[in-house]
Amino acid sequence: MEKLSFTMKASTAAAGTRARAIVGVVASGNLEVLLERDLPANVCVVDIATAVHGFAAVWAAVIDDFVMRRSAGGLHISINDGGARPDMVSLRLAQGVRLIEELEA
């Protein structure tokens, strides 16, 4: 397992009040993303455990892009990766933010 951690400055806080959300599954070409709202509103931390070694630069680019485009402030995001491609990672991150922004049922 390769473990990566990114601490990013976020310009806007994630909307909504949900404390956490989870999307995805750990399978070949897939990943799970756990989002927890427990950080200062201008920070986003992303912790990654991945089965595929040597792609730190690609992860950095995907996370960078995600934090720029989405309101991810205050989120601690934990990822278990089963070898997903960057587009799948971006999709799951977007789904995760959408879910944590939803109104509580």
Partner: peptide, 20 residues
């Protein structure tokens, strides 16, 4: 729940990814 991160203590032996 997954936020408690009670995943398998054994998959690391096989270098396999865990699920929360």
């Amino acid at each position: 729940g997954p936020e408690q991160r009670e995943s398998s203590p054994h998959l690391a032996i096989f270098d396999l990814p865990e699920q929360f």
